[in-house]
Simulated assay, not measured.
Amino acid sequence: MTQSGQTEALIKEDTTEKTDHHYTLRRISSKAKAAIHLEGNYDDSKSVKDQLEWRNGQGQAFAQGGFQLVNNQIVIPQTGLYFIYSQASFRVSCSDADEEGAGKHLTPLSHRIWRYSDSIGNRASLMSAVRSACQDTAQEDSYRAGHGWYNAIYLGAVFQLNKGDRLWTETNQPSELETDEGKTFFGAFAL
């Protein structure tokens, strides 16, 4: 092959590579920030350990940039700053079938994000919140009529995390969770 033939072959190979869809996707993904967004699901008939199950690849859920969901935990891909967030949406029935007209009072609802890091050697609470449902209010009669009490606990903050750290949530009343798309979620993204 002549030198001009070699040059033409290299130009053709370079042009083909740059128009290849895989090349384009690799280029985009190399510039994309690491991020994960998970949707919550709870089915008391199938649930193991009575806990919320996080799902990837359904609805709006996704993972990119090395994030993984392993054993219901988010695994951090690289050391750095991350914004960690989660929301648990609850619907609690404030009427009690055992005693007519007697409602539940101050039902505690809690949601917490945990971290395990090899550098720490044990788990540590990153964020938590507690709310009281079925509070005695002027609207209590409508709650007792079975309409329920709705509220969401949202947690979000920035943390320095290490590669391999694992994050998970704990919710004390998973049977009271609303897990329709967009109501209960968990995620993180690199800053």
Score class of each variant (00 low, 15 high):
79 T>D: 01
165 D>A: 10
140 E>P: 02
152 A>C: 05
139 Q>L: 08
130 V>H: 10
97 A>S: 11
18 K>A: 05
27 R>A: 11
175 S>Y: 07
142 S>G: 07
122 N>Y: 02
189 F>I: 00
25 L>F: 12
43 D>M: 05
72 N>H: 00
182 G>H: 05
191 L>S: 06
68 Q>N: 10
45 S>C: 14
118 D>H: 13
103 G>W: 01
123 R>I: 15
5 G>F: 03
108 P>S: 06
110 S>E: 05
17 E>M: 10
184 T>K: 01
80 G>P: 06
34 A>V: 10
123 R>K: 06
179 T>Q: 10
140 E>N: 14
4 S>T: 02
57 G>V: 01
26 R>H: 09
28 I>T: 09
163 K>F: 12
170 E>H: 10
33 K>Q: 14
2 T>Q: 07
31 K>Y: 08
49 K>C: 05
180 D>V: 11
167 L>I: 00
49 K>L: 06
24 T>G: 07
94 C>D: 04
3 Q>D: 13
38 L>G: 07
124 A>S: 02
5 G>R: 08
37 H>P: 00
28 I>S: 14
125 S>Y: 04
59 G>A: 08
83 F>D: 03
4 S>K: 13
29 S>G: 15
10 L>K: 15
178 E>N: 11
27 R>I: 10
191 L>Q: 11
109 L>M: 00
118 D>E: 09
136 D>G: 09
88 A>K: 04
117 S>P: 01
130 V>D: 07
38 L>D: 09
112 R>V: 12
110 S>T: 15
71 N>P: 02
21 H>I: 12
53 E>Y: 02
191 L>R: 11
10 L>T: 11
20 D>W: 01
87 Q>R: 15
65 G>V: 09
145 A>C: 08
80 G>N: 02
113 I>Y: 07
84 I>H: 01
44 D>I: 11
159 F>G: 05
88 A>T: 00
81 L>C: 14
74 I>L: 00
24 T>S: 13
150 Y>W: 14
